[in-house]
Simulated scan of single mutants.
Amino acid sequence: MNPVVKIVQPSGILDGMKATQFRQEISDIVENGGNIVLIDFKDVTFMDSSGLGALVLALKTVRAAGGKLFICSINEQVRMLFELTSMDRVFEIFPNREEFNNAISP
């Protein structure tokens, strides 16, 4: 079975307001058979703890369905948040979408 890669590209500020919508988008992807999810952060300017919580729940949702979740193109603020919370050890983070494609292509 070929992996089904789905890309989620949030934009602006990933906070409590957008977190619910973001989690719903991940749930929909998993329900529709996406087993590899890439969250492309290139258009995200800021993320707070609510956004981070939504990411952790997204990871649990995807893993529970037997899939994998990856992140790419994070900015300096998001990188610092990940490092402060040790989430950089939990998530597999790629510098950009091209690096991700190279890593998962057979």
Score class of each variant (00 low, 15 high):
Arg23Gly: 00
Thr20Tyr: 05
Val56Ser: 03
Asn96Thr: 02
Ala65Gly: 12
Leu84Cys: 09
Met17Phe: 13
Ile71Ala: 01
Asn96Ile: 00
Leu38Arg: 08
Lys6Cys: 11
Asn101Val: 09
Ala103Asn: 13
Asn75Ile: 01
Leu84Lys: 09
Lys42Gln: 12
Glu25Thr: 15
Ala54Arg: 02
Asp88Gln: 03
Ile39Ser: 04
Glu76Pro: 01
Glu83Trp: 02
Leu14Cys: 08
Ser86Gln: 15
Arg97Leu: 07
Ile13Asp: 14
Asn2Pro: 12
Val56Gly: 01
Leu81Tyr: 01
Leu52Asn: 03
Ile39Gln: 07
Ala64Leu: 10
Asp40Ser: 06
Ala103Leu: 05
Met17Val: 13
Thr85Gly: 07
Met80Gly: 01
Leu38Trp: 03
Glu31Ser: 12
Met80Ile: 13
Met80Tyr: 11
Phe22Gly: 07
Gln77Trp: 00
Gln24Thr: 13
Glu83Gln: 15
Met17Gln: 13
Pro106His: 12
Gln21Lys: 14
Ser86Cys: 08
Asn2Tyr: 10
Asn101Phe: 11
Val90Met: 14
Asn35Gly: 05
Asn75Lys: 05
Gln9Gly: 12
Pro10Asp: 04
Met1Ala: 12
Pro3Gly: 07
Val44Phe: 00
Met87Gly: 08
Val62Pro: 00
Asn102Glu: 14
Asn96Cys: 09
Asn101Gln: 15
Met80Trp: 07
Asp28Leu: 09
Ser86Ala: 14
Ser11Lys: 15
Ile7Asn: 00
Leu59Met: 15
Pro95Glu: 13
Asn2Ser: 14
Arg89Gly: 11
Glu76Val: 08
Ser11Asn: 14
Asn75Thr: 02
Leu81Asp: 08
Thr20Leu: 10
Asn32Glu: 15
Val62Ser: 07
Asp15Trp: 06
Ala19Met: 00
Gly34Lys: 06
Asn75His: 03
Ile74Glu: 01
Phe22Ser: 04
Ile71Leu: 15
Gly16His: 08
Ile93Arg: 03
Leu69Thr: 03
Thr20Met: 07
Pro106Gln: 12
Leu55Pro: 03
Leu69His: 04
Thr61His: 00
Glu25Lys: 11
Phe91Cys: 08
Pro10Asn: 08
Leu59Arg: 11
Cys72Gly: 02
Gly67Leu: 03
Pro95Phe: 04
Ser86Leu: 13
Val56Gln: 01
Asn32Phe: 04
Asp40Phe: 08
Gly51Leu: 04
Ile74Trp: 02
Ile29Gln: 14
Glu25Tyr: 01
Glu99Asn: 12
Ile36Val: 13
Glu31Trp: 06
Thr85Tyr: 09
Gln24Tyr: 06
Ile29Asn: 14
Leu55Thr: 04
Ile71His: 03
Ser11Met: 10
Ile7Ala: 07
Asp48Asn: 13
Ser50Ile: 00
Gly34Cys: 10
Glu25His: 11
Ile71Cys: 04
Phe70Pro: 00
Ser49Glu: 06
Val78Asn: 06
Val5Ser: 08
Met80Ala: 12
Arg97His: 10
Pro10Glu: 06
Val90Asp: 06
Gln24Pro: 02
Ile39Pro: 04
Gly33Asp: 06
Gly53Asn: 10
Asn2Glu: 14
Val30Ile: 02
Phe70Glu: 02
Ile29Tyr: 15
Arg97Glu: 12
Ile13Phe: 14
Arg63Glu: 15
Val30His: 02
Arg63Met: 01
Gly12His: 09
Gly33Asn: 10
Ser27Phe: 01
Phe100His: 05
Ile29Pro: 00
Pro95Tyr: 03
Gly16Lys: 05
Val30Phe: 06
